[in-house]
Write a protein that binds this DNA or RNA. Structure first.
Lengths: 243, 243
DNA sequence: AGGTGAGTTCGGCATGCACCGAACTCACGA
DNA sequence: TCGTGAGTTCGGTGCATGCCGAACTCACCT
């Protein structure tokens, strides 16, 4: 079977620390240059170059050239989805053994970007709320926005005009590794994140994937999506066990 | 971040030909002994033993002892889902390059088992039909069976009594690597496959994951699920290019 | 035209690990 | 109690590949 060989190839690519670090860095959704990725993965530029070209050839990532830089990014939501699903299995690996929870992990658990949309308790809460008020239904192809949802989201400032172009990846559920629940990915998910950032409801924590809820965001999410009692930014439980 | 290290570990485990072959063999849903897996992966028993114990330790597979045999199986649907999602990305890898399609691949494309449920054109067709007649809705936690669906499925001979025990994995969508559409996994998916086999509507092709539609099955699927014109067992297109 | 900084290619090194054969344990049955 | 067959442990071999420094290309700027 030809597919089996490719499966091994893809898994082997992800199964290297340097490459996996680069992929994780790119999961934030932003494009990064080769030198930046080399630094993040703690390898020399030649080594990084080698890794990156292999991943480009395997179509895990793609590259665009601007000036004399090369910007790399995750090539497809499917790749992001695959990485999330591997992470999900990896989380199963050490179930009862002591799991150190750093403050950073706690922040990630509260809210983070997943490729280009929101995940964590925050992402799941928004998804729950939109589903509960029939703004979004998950259907056969992954999901769709109802008329009521379109009204709400457009008022919120989300651009739904791409809606009909590619229904497939328009709004798809994405399994959350920390919450083990679905959150909203695809175009709609990306737009919701973009707008939350634009309104300054959420801010990135340094250069990590973690996001932080601002005071304006607390009020905004409550008024727009009916989200209340999201807990503090950081779940006390997470800190109690923290390292 | 602790999760990143585990991600690498899991991917590296899958990224070895022998181990991936074993995992693929176990994707059929059946349990296999160490010697059988060693033979399938074309390695010696010591080597297989090493691989298997590593995968057990990583909780990708689990093992039960019966007599002096050890039976291995995929430890969780999440692992099966992960493998499918890696395969999906692997399928993206060589998009326009010439893809040889053997008769065997064609058979797999028509219908196959995916862990413990049906996939391929057949699996997708059944899912489509059940969703179209409102027998199944995909909801927040992945999916649920409606009252109409419960009636139809129970008449068909599916046991839904496990239904409330664990709603989570009761009925979940699973992305199909060849059709790139959802089919039905979870308990409901497993039961549908079991019943189709029991009624002799489907038979396994040799010891592969491919399944074949019998004459009784053609009539049965048409009458029960309104499935017609599933195409021949094998799509002529697949054979035309075949090797 | 020469300088600079990003990225690649090349050669060589080192280590990890997949693999096997031989010897071992262990469970079961005669 | 001994034989048999499944599975494991151990020691040793060899290949694959991750890694780097040095030298190179290439784009852009002065």
């Amino acid at each position: 079977m030809v597919a089996a060989a490719n499966l091994v190839e893809v898994a082997a690519l992800v199964g290297d620390t340097a490459r996996a670090t680069m992929l994780s860095a790119l999961m934030g959704g932003q494009s990064l240059t080769g030198s930046e990725l080399a630094f993040l993965a703690r390898v020399s530029r030649p080594t990084a170059s080698e890794h990156l070209s292999r991943m480009v050839e395997a179509r895990l990532i793609s590259v665009t050239r601007k000036r004399s830089y090369r910007y790399y990014r995750i090539s497809s939501p499917l790749v992001a989805c695959m990485l999330e699903s591997i992470k999900l299995v990896a989380a199963l690996e050490v179930p009862q053994r002591y799991q150190p929870r750093s403050a950073r992990d706690a922040a990630l658990r509260f809210g983070r970007t997943c490729y280009d949309h929101l995940a964590g308790r925050l992402g799941v809460a928004i998804a729950d709320s939109l589903i509960a008020c029939d703004c979004i239904v998950l259907g056969e192809d992954g999901g769709d926005v109802t008329d009521a949802g379109a009204k709400l989201l457009t008022e919120f400032g989300v651009d739904l005009s791409q809606k009909r172009r590619n229904r497939r990846i328009f709004c798809k559920p994405c399994l959350d590794w920390s919450e083990r629940r679905y959150h909203i990915a695809g175009h709609v998910g990306a737009e919701i994140q973009r707008r939350c950032m634009e309104l300054n409801w959420l801010t990135r924590v340094d250069d990590t994937r973690a996001v932080q809820l601002t005071t304006a965001g607390q009020a905004g999410l409550r008024d727009t999506f009916g989200l209340d009692n999201l807990g503090l930014q950081v779940d006390p439980l997470d800190l109690k066990v923290g390292a």
